[in-house]
Amino acid sequence: MADSIEEVKKAKKLYMFIGLLLFFFTVITVMVASVEWLDFGGHGFDGVDATIGLIIAAFKASLVMFIFMHLNHERPLIYFLYGLGLVMAFFCIWLIGWSKSDPIQYGNSNRADGFYNPDKPATNVHGHD
């Protein structure tokens, strides 16, 4: 971390540059979503756009974390604490996977479309009781 006055002065320029970089990538994200020649994948929103949007967001977030929050040169304890939070967050997202393993699905579809049709019998898609 910048502790001496000289280092702090130098860091200010970096902060300004990072700020501009964040502005720039925000504009890029919006353009990917709205300008046709930057609309990758199929026409309109699709998985490709989502991937690009999230990659840019992750890059922007890492700039904030590493530069503004000084994670580029922190003590090991901080990495441990923050890493713990991230692991827990990913665990929460991983939990969604369990919903796929529900042995009983309704309707005639194996798609995760959530349609519930009480007129159709429950299908045991996993083949066990």
Binding site: G85, M88, A89, F90, C92, I93, I96, D113, Y116
Partner: peptide, 22 residues
């Protein structure tokens, strides 16, 4: 760290609702 977990849970909720929306 606890905040990351909190918002991670909410983003997880968002993803779940979106993937399984009828």
């Amino acid at each position: 760290a606890s905040e990351v977990t909190l918002f991670g849970g909410l983003f997880s909720g968002y993803l779940f609702l979106r993937l399984y929306a009828d």
